[in-house]
Design a protein around this nucleic acid. Structure first.
Ligand SMILES: [Mn+2]
Ligand SMILES: [Mn+2]
Ligand SMILES: [Mn+2]
Ligand SMILES: [Mn+2]
Lengths: 219, 219
DNA sequence: AAATAAGTTTAGGCAAAGCTAAACCTTTCT
DNA sequence: AGAAAGGTTTAGCTTTGCCTAAACTTATTT
């Protein structure tokens, strides 16, 4: 029930990411793990023989309960490690994903729980994504995209989408980070860009591509 | 020159462990990595094609300079992670080896150096083994086995051999740990067991099997 | 010097994981 | 309904990594 290869775990994680508990097309799966169609079909067969997925040929693949549990456990490890890398080792939030991609496959229950303790049982990772807990429960994903806010509202940034290195670099340039508070001072009806005013009075414009990947809660 | 599989790295590490810069027989190598002879022969051919080892058929295998550098880097990672697990996460020194065996394969130069910084650039791991430094230099292995000391000498434990879980359990039972100081009060000429007296006055006997895996320096 | 023992390599398999090209379903369009 | 398009699976091949049995070297013993 336990020992899985790195490849298997990556397929499981992809399945979870794409479909949650629902069915996923083999093409999408292949795409997500960076493989070609036939490789995914085959991989999925191996997973099925281990009881981690259910397959309906030509229709789609779906995680079983065991598969779902595994997926959440891997995600837990991934996000705990990202938290460690940022909080303890001083990495930037744009650097940690590829390293966590490796660390998420380390197998040791004790390690995961000791790491969680060491980090004070965090509920969100450095990007604001919820960390699945040891019991499998997942804290709700908080915040809504900036465009959903109306002019004049006060908000706090709580999460950002992983939209690539350039996105993070831009966030750093604008000194946007989790926990920061702003007032939405203006919305362009031309290109949907928005203007934020920071607490120190400075204000700046954000393109739609930027703001759609930034999530906040209203204050 | 860089990307190596976990299996490759394990062979490299084994080669270093068994022979350092010298030649190693394929049987011993196979034995060390937990494989059979033919698997080692084949693995070694793959390593040779990558320039990491030199082979003389029927004679032995030897690390090249590249191979040696890689071996030391892996060992560095292994021992840094062990240090992290004990110092930061609170693992016992008997638990960390198998986990470090996985962590040593994580690939990220930046991670290794950030981890080393975080641990204050340690020179020895939790078992007292020297940690290869970023420049490839290896601090000298300190201490000599307890039997090498003569009756009456004062000593400090600085290193223990990894002689399996039971050995560590016994050390914990006797409350022996790195840095502890003792006086060697007696040596049995019958079975080479020795008697140590701790600083608090308590004294106890150590079998030859125990003492031969414990290293100390004289005070 | 020849025979035996011990250790190493070759030969032939197998599973995981990937690929391309070809065959096969499904869905959609005419 | 029939045909074209799009996506999925099958077929056949490759590399890594490990295995057993058989052949081959080297070292040791008589
Ligand atoms: Mn991530
Ligand atoms: Mn991964
Ligand atoms: Mn170790
Ligand atoms: Mn290893």
């Amino acid at each position: 029930m336990n020992n899985h290869t790195e490849s298997e775990e990556n397929y499981i994680k992809a399945l979870y990411h794409l479909g949650g508990e629902g069915a996923v097309a083999s093409g999408a799966l292949a795409n997500r793990v960076g493989a070609k169609g036939p490789s995914a079909t085959q991989a999925v067969r191996r997973l099925a023989s281990k009881g981690l997925v259910e397959v309906i040929p030509y229709k789609g693949v779906k995680l079983t309960l065991d598969g779902l549990t595994l997926a959440k456990h891997i995600l837990r490890k991934h996000r705990l490690w990202e938290t460690f890398l940022v909080e303890k080792l001083g990495f930037g939030w744009e650097e940690v994903h590829p390293i966590a991609e490796q660390l998420e496959h380390i197998q040791s229950r004790e390690l995961v729980e000791k790491l969680a303790d060491y980090l004070d049982s965090p509920v969100h990772d450095p990007h604001g994504d919820p960390i699945p807990q040891a019991d499998g429960k997942i804290p709700p994903a908080t915040g809504k995209p900036l465009q959903k806010f109306s002019q004049g509202s006060s908000l706090k940034v709580v999460r950002v989408e992983d939209a690539g290195t350039d996105f993070f670099t831009q966030l750093d340039l604008l000194e946007i980070s989790l926990g920061k508070e702003y007032t939405l001072t203006s919305v362009s009806s031309f290109d949907s860009s928005i203007q934020l005013q920071a607490e120190d009075g400075e204000s700046f414009w954000l393109s739609h591509s930027m703001s759609s990947n930034i999530y906040a809660i209203s204050l």
